[in-house]
Every structure is written in structure tokens, then in C-alpha cells.
Computed example of a mutant assay.
Amino acid sequence: MIAWTEDQLRLRDALRRWHERLSADHIELDRRAVFPDALWRLVCESGLLRVPFDERWGGLGQDLLTTMSLLEDLGHGCRNGGLIFSICTHLCSTGVPIQRFGSTALKDRYMAGLCDGATIGAHAITEPGSGSDALSMRTTARLSADGDGYVINGSKTFVSNGPVADLFVVYVRTEPKHGALGVTAFVIERGTPGFSIGRPIEKMGLRTSPLCELFFDDCRVPKFSVLGGPGLGFSILDHVMKWEILCSFIVNVGEMRYRFERCVDYAKTRRQFDRPIGSFQSVANKIVDMLMRLETSRIWLYQTARRFLNDENVTTDISIAKLLASEGNVASAMDAVQIFGGNGYMTEFGLEKDLRNAVAGTIYSGTSEIQRDRIAKMLGL
């Protein structure tokens, strides 16, 4: 495992002091399915959004592993899973690609606002007719008649942070016949003429992280809004998805750790038939399985992150890590509900919310089925 430096531990401890405040009213906010503006302001105040970005923009200049460690700790300490998901979307899907691939003009225009949280970020890939099959996207961008910009037409759906975002990284087709090389990423501001944001879509879990559809009707954007360069959209997306999986699912490890600790305490104190329920093998085995899942997921995620930072091929590792963490989180949440019995099914204990939130992880960032298909292909099957 990783030996964290004193500076890293001090930063973790400094951010840990915010966890309880960020958990405020988490059950009621989930029930109402609203984005917690007041809590977002606390996130901005905490400095968490600055962690992985360069100091020249107001960031803290920390690396991927440090960012992951802080997000794991946040998953353990903060009970508002939707808020954490919005944080990860903002960091990984908007800030990371603009810092890594953006022109000087794009960075100068947007990075400071992304670092301090005054600008909320989102990204848009999925369309009503294409989810896992991203190459089937139909939203297009063509050069304007005067050649000074692009005109975008189409729509996107399931856009996390969409209803509250100020800035969007949007992936569209610029060369329909060129396959993956015909996709370009654009950075688009809310309020751009021809760009409209649909109503929030109600969902099963992560309910404090809003999502919606986006619509583009002859939406004209300047050439400097191209991220990285024409045709580089899928290369950018590949980098983004690695960051997204490593950061979003290390949060799940933190959540599993919190749930494991809670179940151990409950199994020691809850008595049935004049015995602590942890003395029953059926309960004890569930808790042991919870521990194995969280430790295996943690090892795979950090190991994959180290290999990624060393520029090694982590295609298979990323898929395995994502499967372990997402499916392990669902199993862990289900076990916790069972261990708590009737209490686990009740809203006030927060465990049924954990289960609803966990299911989403088997779908976003590439479904479990897609991950297994990728692994099989890497095996030559």
C-alpha cells in the first residue's frame, strides 16, 4: 500500500474537518432531490476543488494519487453521495481535460473559476440513441460559413451537473466518416445562443447530483472552444474516463469502509436470542466479505493509478478496478441492509440510500457488461 507523506496527511486532516458539515441534512436533501447550493459553497470554501490543478490557476498542484486519497476519505466521511458525485464530475470531466488538453486561451478563461468553484463543470457524451455505443453519436459540428467557428446541432442526455453547470465539455461528430477520429470535444458556456438546457431528470439514486438533457439548435461556438484539436475527442475522452473511474470509484471504497465499520459496530451491539448478532456465522461472513471487497477494490484502484502515472497500458486494469469497486459497492450496500434488518430498510438509517446510490456505479463510466466485454477482447476472445 501507499505510504502517505506528512504533507499529504496534513491536507487530508484539513479537509476531513469539513466532512460533517457536508453531510448536513443528507437524507432530506436526497428525499427532495435538490442540488445543495449551500453545501457546494462549503466545498468551494474547503479548497477541495483546487486539489489536482496547477498553482498558477489557484490550484494546490497535487497529483492523481493524492487526489484519490482525499476522495476516498471524503467517501468515508461525507454521507451526501450525490454531492460527491458532482464534485468528481466537476474535477475529472471538466477541469482535468481543460488543464491537460486546453489551449492557453481556454485555460486562462476557465481554470481559475473551476479551481474556486465559481464555475461548475459538466460534460456531455451520451445521447438518447447512443449510450455504451458512443461512436453512434449523432450530434454534429460543422464549420460555419465564414470559417470563424463551428455550428453544433443535436442533443445529449444524462448530463450530470447539467442543470446547475456553467461550463460543459461536449463531445460531437465533426467528421462523420472518420469513426473515432471524427469526434471533437468543445468547451461551451451556459447561455451560448442556440444552446438550451432541459429540465432535471428524476432518478433512483445520487439524487442530489442533478442531470438533464442538452439541446443544440444551430449553436455557434468560436474556434478557440475546440479542446485539444479537431478529431481528438476520443483521445481526450479516454484520458478523462481513466481519471473518472479512478476518482469516482475510490469514493466507493471510502463508502464501503464506512459501511463496514458501521456494520461491525452494529453486529457487536445488536443482540438477538441473547447473543450479539455478530456471533452468528451468517452475519459474520457478510462482514468478512465486505472487508475483502473494499480492500481488493482499494488495491486495484491505487495499483492501476500508479501504472497509469507511469504511462503503462491500463486498459484491462481500469475495467477490472471499475468492476470490483462498483459491483463490490452494491454487494456491500445490500449486505449492510440485511445486517441491519428492518432498520436497514428504513430511510432514517441511510442504508437504503446507499444501496440506491451504489446501483448507479454499475452503469455510469461504462456499464459492467461493457467492462467485461473490454476485458474479454483484451484476452483475445
Rank of each mutant, 00 (worst) to 15 (best):
L29Q: 02
I87H: 00
Y345I: 14
T89V: 11
Y258E: 10
S326L: 04
I188H: 01
Q8H: 10
G58L: 02
K223N: 11
S235Y: 05
S319Q: 11
L323A: 06
A3V: 15
R100I: 00
P36D: 01
G75E: 01
S368K: 05
D289H: 13
V314M: 06
S46F: 04
P128W: 10
T315Q: 12
H239G: 03
I152D: 02
Y302A: 06
R262V: 05
V359T: 11
H76L: 11
D289T: 15
I339Y: 07
K203Q: 10
P210H: 02
I277F: 04
D73I: 02
T5P: 03
A141E: 02
I339H: 07
T174A: 01
F215A: 14
V43Q: 03
S297K: 04
G366W: 05
A24F: 08
V187L: 03
R138W: 02
L106W: 07
R293K: 15
R298A: 10
S132P: 10
C92M: 14
L323H: 01
V251S: 09
L323P: 00
I2K: 08
V151R: 09
G75I: 06
R10L: 11
V183K: 00
L65K: 05
S209C: 15
L91F: 08
Q281R: 13
V169L: 08
A305I: 11
P210F: 00
E244Q: 14
V264H: 07
T362R: 13
M334Q: 14
S144A: 12
S144W: 04
F260G: 03
D166K: 07
R100G: 00
L91E: 01
L301H: 03
L83M: 05
S365E: 02
G380V: 02
F168R: 02
F168P: 02
E261S: 10
D218P: 01
G328E: 05
I84S: 07
R372F: 13
T208M: 07
G233E: 03
L22K: 07
E28M: 07
I188Y: 07
A376E: 09
S209M: 10
D13F: 11
R356K: 13
M334S: 14
G131V: 13
G205Y: 06
K177Q: 14
F158N: 12
V288D: 12
M1Y: 12
I152A: 07
